[in-house]
Design a binder for these strands. Structure first.
Lengths: 214, 214
DNA sequence: AAAAAGACGACATAGTCATGCAGTGTGAAA
DNA sequence: TTTCACACTGCATGACTATGTCGTCTTTTT
């Protein structure tokens, strides 16, 4: 509940950011900033970490990154809620952090009010995110429709793309599906053309990501 | 922007709920309820559907369910934002609806204010959810067993595997990450060893399937 | 019936890959 | 200090891939 005191640790290398956050959070009667750290290494040696309810963590830290940091916390103190707060809104970072166990993902530009409410949200069973990030997360769940999202491959092409993913050579594939090696080549050309790629690995990556194969 | 008029359709079989929502939304100057329907069948025959910006949909509908309904809308009118609003907070329904293409998921008990703000949120690039649902969605991204489920690749290896998926040549990768071509080779050998594969495409396939990359 | 499209087979070749072997420098463990 | 693992650099080579071009034989379209 909101009436309970929330103990917070901050891990952020930028001094102004770190002290700014601390100052904001300390004005709240229901928050208590236990400690602030400029890097994971020192934070993880401190006793304050395990006493924390919430850790506010930057993603771009010297030494152990936030991505690694959140994994460490998740493994060692699974009950601590880690909220990433960074300047990166790239999918790569967002999903790595969330997969690593972050419970929320904020941008550093959040207003003081939003920051405080995000922490309360996390404590109350939510997962604070900016609207844009929520949208990205939801869209990552959407199953792509073969209609619009990606090209329609023929049965033969599908069959061959499937084999491509296993690393088989042209010859191995040709034997597998009873077709000449050049026949396999022919279909692979067309697969590449349709998927707009020019290598096996790209084709496989696209095929799996777009759920064409698997 | 909020100043723009948002055209809304409601699909909900419960008469009181349906009319209640309509009444709430109609009080808002930036909302316009085009039509309300008690089932998908009639809704999808109507011209109003394609004119809608947002569809508020119940999940438990007679005939075509909300789960099916959202898929239909997604396929035929990909720009329409479908928000599910239901009494079910079971994971099963939530994830099916979201995978089917819903952009948001609300509980029927939402306050009138929250309902309106959720629709605005969706229109502004967000994905409205209750905190509990946000948490479930985020937790679904968390990787379970970082230890045994998959091999541990080093940062460098991860970085290179990521590039392998794009079909880059050794040389291109070496330039990208500031390492000699032979250095790239060295890491790729190790990646292959760890993943127990012996080709790019296999490595990429395994990497994506095991969520090591992406 | 003629044209167009799709599914091969054949051949050629520059380019890329997979892999083996042999070093070097660094930092941690013994 | 020695040993050992790790992160490279260098080199070599057979194997495989990507792509272009040409030709044949159906099937579909017009």
């Amino acid at each position: 509940m909101d009436t309970e005191l929330t103990k917070i640790c901050i891990i952020e290398d930028n001094e102004y950011m770190r002290e700014g956050w601390e100052a904001i959070l300390d004005t709240q009667p229901d928050f208590c900033v236990l400690s602030t750290f400029e890097m994971c290494e020192t934070a993880f040696e401190s006793d304050d970490i395990e006493r924390a309810d919430v850790i506010l963590m930057d993603i771009d830290l010297p030494g152990i990154s936030g991505i690694e940091g959140v994994k460490y916390v998740r493994e060692n103190y699974p009950d601590i809620l880690v909220i990433m707060a960074t300047i990166f809104d790239e999918d790569k970072y967002i999903f790595k952090a969330l997969q690593g166990g972050a419970i929320g993902y904020l941008m550093k530009k959040v207003s003081p009010d939003d920051l405080c409410n995000s922490i309360r949200d996390a404590r109350n069973g939510g997962s604070p995110m900016t609207p844009e990030i929520a949208r990205k997360v939801i869209q990552s769940l959407h199953i792509k429709k073969p209609k619009e999202s990606s090209v329609q491959l023929s049965e033969r092409e599908l069959e061959i793309l499937q084999e491509l993913a296993t690393g088989k050579s042209y010859m191995a594939i040709s034997k597998q599906i009873h077709l000449s090696e050049d026949g396999v080549r022919y279909h692979i050309r067309n697969i590449y053309k349709k998927l707009e790629v020019n290598s096996r690995s790209e084709a496989v990556a696209k095929g799996i990501k777009n759920r064409i194969i698997l």
